[in-house]
Design a protein around this nucleic acid. Structure first.
Lengths: 227, 227
DNA sequence: TGTAGTAACTGACCGCAAGTCAGTCCCTGT
DNA sequence: ACAGGGACTGACTTGCGGTCAGTTACTACA
C-alpha cells in the first residue's frame, strides 16, 4: 500500500505550489513589499500553513531563487555539453550569463540578494547550505572549463583557474547589476552603453588570462564571429 | 541680532548629533536590526524628533553613509594632490580603496547598501540626489586621472576613460565585498586568498588598458616597489 | 462500518517596530 | 508681561512576520 509514498509526493507538490505562489508575489513586489498574507492568498492556503513548509519569508525567497540558479546551471551545462573548442565555450558561457540576465531578470535580481549577507538574518541553516551547494555547482562548471583551457595551453598556467573564475564571474555579475539598475542613467548622463562596457571588460579580462597561442585563437574566433 | 543664524547652526548641529547616534547604532546592528527607538535613546531625543530631521530610517542610514563617501573622497583627493606620476597615482588610488575598506569597513558596507536599489523603497528624493552627487564626485576623480593618462600616452586612447573607470571600480568593489563576506570561506574550501585575487585582477585590468609605453613604465614601477 | 489516532491545515492572535500627531514646553521679539 | 511659533514629546496607529490552540480530514484497524 503506497500511502506513505503518495503522501510524500503530495507534500512535495504542495511545496512546489507554494513556491509557485511565492514566485508570483516576489517577482511582482520584491522581498520587502511582498507579504506572507499575500503569498498565502495566492497559494489558497492559510498563512500558518506556509510555515509548515518553510521556516521564514527569507527561506521561501531563497527557495524561489534556487529555481533560478538551477535554470542557469542547466543553461551552463548545455554550453559545456555542446563540446565546442575551449575558447568558444568560454565565450558562450559569458554570453549565456548575459542572456540569463535578459531573459530571467527576476531570478537574476534574487540571486543578487543572496550575495548580500547582511539580509540573511532569518535564513535557516539547511536552506543556506542548499543554496551554497547549488552555487558551488555553478562555479565548478566554469572552473572545470578553465582547467581544460590550461591543459590545452590556451590559458596561462601561472594563474589559478579558481581565481580566474572569481574574477570573470564577479566582473560579469557587477556589470549586469549595474546594467539592471543604472543603464539609462549612464546612457543619459555620460553617453555610456553599459552593455558595451560589459563586453569590453570581458574581452580585456579573457585576453589577459590567455597564452600567446590562446590570444591568437581568440582573435581568429572573434574575426569569424563578428565579421 | 544673529538669532536666525544661531538657530540655523543649532539645527545643523542637531542633525549632526542625530547622525552620531545613528552611526553608533547602525555600525553595531546593521540596518535591519537597528531600531529608531534605539537611535532616539542614543541621541537622547524622542523618536518623533528624529522624523523632524530625517524622513525615514533609510534616509538616516544614507546620511551616515554619506560621511563614509566624503571620507573616501578626501582620501582620493589627497592621492591626486600628491601629484605623483600618473601610474603611481592610479596604483595609489587602488590601494587607497583597499585601505578604506580595511580601516572603515562599516562605511564600506553601508556604501554597498546604496548600490542595492531594491532596498531603497523609503528613501526621499532629496537624499537620493545628495548621494548621487557625492558618488559622482568620487567617479570624477578617477575619470579625470585616466584622462590625464590618455593625454600622456600611457593609457590606450581607443578606450573611454569613463568605461575604464566603471570597470576598475566595479572590479575592486565586488572583490572587496567578497573579501568582506567570504574571505575565510574561500581560504578554507579552495585555499584561495581573495586579497591576492583582488591584486591580480587589478593588475590584469590596468595592464590591459595601457599602451606599450604605459606597460613599460608600469613594470618599472612595480619592480622598484616590490623589489 | 464505526472509531481512534494522526497529519494537515486554519486564522485569530502576539510582539515588535516604523511612522504620526495632538499636545506641551520654551524661546524670542515686542 | 505676554503672544506667537518653532522644537520637542511619547502614546498611539498601522502593518506584518511569526505562533499555536483548535479544527478538519484522512487512514488503519477492529
Amino acid at each position: 500500500m503506497g500511502t506513505v509514498e503518495r503522501k510524500e509526493r503530495e507534500k512535495e507538490s504542495r511545496k512546489e505550489s507554494i513556491i509557485d505562489a511565492a514566485q508570483k508575489v516576489f517577482f511582482d513586489k520584491g522581498l520587502l513589499l511582498a507579504t506572507m498574507d499575500e503569498i498565502a492568498e495566492q497559494a489558497e492556503l492559510a498563512k500558518g500553513t506556509l510555515y509548515l513548509y518553510y521556516h521564514s519569508k527569507e527561506d521561501l525567497y531563497l527557495a524561489v531563487m534556487m529555481r533560478g540558479m538551477s535554470l542557469l546551471n542547466d543553461m551552463f551545462r548545455s554550453d559545456i555539453d555542446a563540446r565546442a573548442p575551449f575558447l568558444v565555450t568560454l565565450l558562450n558561457l559569458s554570453e549565456t550569463y548575459s542572456k540569463f540576465y535578459e531573459e530571467h531578470k527576476n531570478y537574476f535580481r534574487m540571486m543578487h540578494f543572496f550575495e548580500t549577507p547582511q539580509f540573511h538574518k532569518q535564513v535557516s541553516a539547511e536552506m543556506r547550505h542548499s543554496c551554497d551547494s547549488v552555487a558551488q555547482q555553478l562555479w565548478n562548471i566554469v572552473i572545470e572549463a578553465l582547467k581544460q583551457g590550461v591543459r590545452q595551453g590556451l590559458v596561462r598556467d601561472d594563474l589559478s583557474p579558481v581565481e580566474i573564475t572569481i574574477v570573470l564571474w564577479s566582473n560579469a555579475t557587477t556589470l549586469l547589476m549595474r546594467i539592471d539598475a543604472q543603464y539609462d542613467l549612464w546612457k543619459e548622463t555620460m553617453n555610456i552603453d553599459l552593455k558595451h562596457t560589459l563586453r569590453l571588460s570581458t574581452t580585456l579580462l579573457i585576453e589577459s588570462i590567455l597564452t600567446d597561442k590562446g590570444k591568437e585563437e581568440l582573435h581568429r574566433i572573434l574575426n569569424t564571429r563578428y565579421r
